[in-house]
Design a protein around this nucleic acid. Sequence first.
DNA 1: GATGAATGAGGATTCATTCAT
DNA 2: CATGAATGAATCCTCATTCAT
Lengths: 224, 224, 224, 224
Amino acid sequence: MSAENRNATPSVAAAPAREMPATARGVRTRAALVAAARVVFERDGYLDARLTDITKEAGCATGTFYTYFTNKEEVFAAVLEGARDDMMHPGMDRVDDADDPYAVLEASNRAYLTAYQRNAKLMGLMEQVAHVDPEFRRFRTERAEAFIARNARGIAELQKRSVADPDIDPVTASRALSGMVSRMAYGAFVSGEAADDGREYDLEELVYTLTRLWANALKFPDRT
Amino acid sequence: MSAENRNATPSVAAAPAREMPATARGVRTRAALVAAARVVFERDGYLDARLTDITKEAGCATGTFYTYFTNKEEVFAAVLEGARDDMMHPGMDRVDDADDPYAVLEASNRAYLTAYQRNAKLMGLMEQVAHVDPEFRRFRTERAEAFIARNARGIAELQKRSVADPDIDPVTASRALSGMVSRMAYGAFVSGEAADDGREYDLEELVYTLTRLWANALKFPDRT
Amino acid sequence: MSAENRNATPSVAAAPAREMPATARGVRTRAALVAAARVVFERDGYLDARLTDITKEAGCATGTFYTYFTNKEEVFAAVLEGARDDMMHPGMDRVDDADDPYAVLEASNRAYLTAYQRNAKLMGLMEQVAHVDPEFRRFRTERAEAFIARNARGIAELQKRSVADPDIDPVTASRALSGMVSRMAYGAFVSGEAADDGREYDLEELVYTLTRLWANALKFPDRT
Amino acid sequence: MSAENRNATPSVAAAPAREMPATARGVRTRAALVAAARVVFERDGYLDARLTDITKEAGCATGTFYTYFTNKEEVFAAVLEGARDDMMHPGMDRVDDADDPYAVLEASNRAYLTAYQRNAKLMGLMEQVAHVDPEFRRFRTERAEAFIARNARGIAELQKRSVADPDIDPVTASRALSGMVSRMAYGAFVSGEAADDGREYDLEELVYTLTRLWANALKFPDRT
DNA sequence: GATGAATGAGGATTCATTCAT
DNA sequence: CATGAATGAATCCTCATTCAT
């Protein structure tokens, strides 16, 4: 985890991106475009967003777009870039007792869900775009794999300490459980799947259930 | 699962569908179009599929398309229709000991995963389309909710029989665990996420791990 | 020279041309487009011709253009196709005395110049396009080489019959003399180079001078 | 050739040229732009050359271009300016025996072809631009007419001295024969037409054949 | 029913030229 | 003088949908 893929991937897509602006005005315009793009994308969706909507929203001419980006994918990448750190490294509260795996797990899940909720619109967008553009499919996969790998390491660690079911492959388990959490986050914060239940999603209930299921699944010892 | 989705309208989406063909030739043409549509969709994806590609593949004229469908959504609905039953009611092997919840769960998971694998291309398509067309988003959600409801009922039942952790909301748990399974199925059979692990997805390993995690999560009693 | 590159090169450019129309209406529309294209090209030049001008001239919608052609090059190729035979095989009057090389040469030059004059606008266009599009550069070169080869054969023949200077390489000579004629034709009928002389180009004077120069250059024996 | 083209305006085309730079820095920048323009034109062709390519190549900002030129035509004119003298007055070796018309002609042709070869890229460019921009069409024509007039004078002179066929109009003949030479030069040094002959163009062979054809065409007396 | 040509709104993209710094 | 970002008119091209045969 930590800094390893922080600097490695400066841009999301490997497109031959336009170079960064040289002047202050350029920086401002570019930023305006990225901000506008986020607004338009979140409002209209990736597919329905037209380049002119973005420039209009940013208050500049059509051509200006092409000073900074080559196409829609590229602005979208820039938009993601902005939220990237928060999405990849959701700051986790200090856990008092780092030896209590349940507490660590719970804090981790809460951090993940909170970050997801904070960036809900963007995450939904990500999901849509990943299903439309291979470039971003890869990006999404990488993000997922980063979490999976991190969690797999955690599980293996717990197995070594004999606090997790040893009969389970840590990677597959991580894949399953991480998927469970992200899938749930999507359902709760993006698609609002349970809206017709009449019941709203309660973050704490989510944290509680997911953590408990996860802990049970790995056979964490009962907390005394 | 019950009759809730099986009402009068045969079409998936609620579009004002064209009526079914009257003549034998009509039936044949329509069938050819649906088959062609599946081929084209699976080959090019929903978004990149052009109506003319479909008619070309079906070996008929462009205009003929509109004799049977009003637009792309509608053919796609017809394509789904074909695989619908298999996807909704994956035939489950008779389980000898219906009282062994683990065995039942395992059989159920195997049935689900097998069906998913059988219809992998289509499931991937479903996923893509759901992220693009609200009509199908609803359809996908309904399918998911059907499974969730079914599984929630199962969990509640087990709780009543005291073979499942009573401290967990059955619907939320079902949502989480069902999501875990479907997410995993997608990763394994559609996006081929783990291809770079060097390891192929092994169906039985999947069934084993998912079932075990699920059982653990609900605190099924140890099998003796 | 005969049919050797008559069927060989059905289309000028090797572009993946749209297939020919299946219905009579289609044939009509395509023809209208080609005719319109010729008008527009001759009026505005190749570079300044816009696709919409062509469709407007043809009296059809923009999109219709793309039913038959993929781009400007392709229509231009189609336009050339129409005049191709006349340009490649300018019908030559029967020459009474086929043994009189001077008479044959004169008839040949007259035929060439007449054909050039008939298709002057198009030849000018060809010249322009050849300087702009490599595809057509090749076409133009091929046309030129066809004439050069034909004439080189003629020269070699005369050398064998000892009626032409044997100390000259027939291909190089043909290249030079054929170029002289085509260059002159361009100057006279397309660019109207001598317009400021006050003197108009007189076809017969052209034929006379070019033929005489050519005959002298090859040292045809004096006609007695 | 005389002073007719050498009037006050140093620029080739009659565009309302910007005045020459006042400062030393200005001179340097302008020169850099002209040099860059030549590079870009020769590399990309006139039509595909973008103004920004030129400024980039010159290592200066886009706007700087407009300090010295109003548009593409004007830089191109400036580029031509540089090679102008060499192209218009190809230095001819002293011919020992100025009374030997064949020797004079040969020297003249060699000088012309050599100059053409030296400036091949630019001549090709000229040709392209002449077919695209009327301004330069005129320039090209003037250059051609200068050679034609000079040669016509020469021919008339020889006719007076009875060493050239008197039955030929000297201007028309000059037009034809000068065209023959320039056409050949273009074919040999620019379009590389004969590349597929397997034979390379040999300058001396060219000089020999063209001179001989020309001499024959005018019925120069046999050299003894 | 089947055919396939015609339609045209809609959006992306380029690049010469301007102008504030 | 130099800078380089901003401008936006001008075209190209696609493809769902219609309709005469």
